[in-house]
Simulated scan of single mutants.
Amino acid sequence: MTQPILQVSHLTKRFGGVAAVLDVSVDVLPHETLAIIGPNGAGKTTFYNMLSGRMTPSSGKVTFEAQDITGLPPHRISRMGVSRSFQINNIFNEMTVRENIEVALTAYHGDSRRWYNIASRNRPIQQEADMLLERLSLTDLAVRRAGVISYGDKRLVEIAMVLATRPHLVLLDEPTAGMTPDETHRVTALVKSLAATGDYTFLITEHDMGVVFDVADRVLVMHRGQSLVLGTPQEVKMHPEVRRAYLGDAEEEIAP
């Protein structure tokens, strides 16, 4: 039997007397893509913050690759192989696309001081940056300033920076938010392509149900901080509680 890469056990986060996340448990299998959906206020961001070390759980446990990472700081969790993108682009607009990726690679390899001089004379980092540019179809934008490229391309640069940390588990937070249909298609195709390599396990929060049902192997539905349903996209799509609580029982909204 395949051992989970991530085990979340009875995870809870309280703010005063209010539970933003309450007793959520889920096992994530290696190389799968698990989507986490739910209405605003369902607890998805708080859940992500606890997994990535930005918040300490009130109770419960998070185990990654058989190691307890509960409450560890973000940099230690990242070093162990868990990396996260954010809803808002987290890139350096005044730098080129290649320089952004070199920053992430230089930090990953352990010396972020005077990063530009280090990267400019470090051939292995340059080569690794070029490989990531090619993998994400960003080579043509390598010398463009990141601040002037399209929103969709900025999200791809951020994903490239996440991959530069060589994660085993990638947390994508609303990766297609604010995108045009063409940009959404590019990001969706990229996630599917990366998942197909078998190099990564993905957790993805997403409001676009078309994206969710296209990329996810399983879907966790959260509602009012709790786990409502966990199952395949088809099981979730047809679940009556999900349709009432989140999908609005509107077939056209959830058609794959």
Rank of each mutant, 00 (worst) to 15 (best):
S58L: 04
G53R: 03
T63W: 01
Q67L: 01
T45A: 04
M50G: 03
R54D: 09
E65V: 03
K61W: 03
T45G: 08
S52E: 12
M50C: 09
G60C: 13
E65Y: 04
T46A: 02
M50D: 05
P74M: 07
G71L: 15
L72C: 08
G53E: 07
T46C: 04
K61A: 02
L51N: 00
Q67R: 13
V62L: 07
H75W: 14
E65A: 15
S58R: 06
H75E: 10
A42F: 06
E65C: 05
L51F: 07
P74D: 09
K44L: 02
F47M: 03
S52Y: 12
M55V: 07
K44P: 01
K61Y: 04
M55N: 14
S52M: 12
T46W: 00
I69R: 05
S52W: 10
F64K: 00
G53F: 12
L51M: 09
G71F: 14
M55W: 09
T63K: 00
G53H: 11
M50W: 04
G71R: 04
S58D: 07
A42L: 14
T63C: 05
G43H: 01
T45F: 05
G43Y: 05
T56P: 06
T45V: 08
H75C: 09
P74R: 06
I69T: 13
T56F: 12
V62M: 09
A66G: 10
T46H: 06
T63V: 15
Y48L: 15
M50Q: 10
E65Q: 10
G43F: 06
D68V: 05
Q67E: 12
F64N: 00
F47C: 03
F64P: 01
T70V: 07
R54N: 14
N49F: 10
F47N: 02
Q67K: 12
A66D: 14
F64H: 00
L51H: 02
R54E: 13
T45D: 04
F47R: 03
A42R: 10
N49K: 13
T45C: 11
P74W: 13
M50I: 08
S59A: 14
A42M: 08
S59G: 15
L72T: 01
E65W: 00
P74Y: 05
Q67Y: 03
K44Y: 03
P57H: 06
Y48N: 04
Y48K: 02
L51G: 00
H75Y: 15
G71D: 15
L51T: 00
M50V: 03
T45M: 11
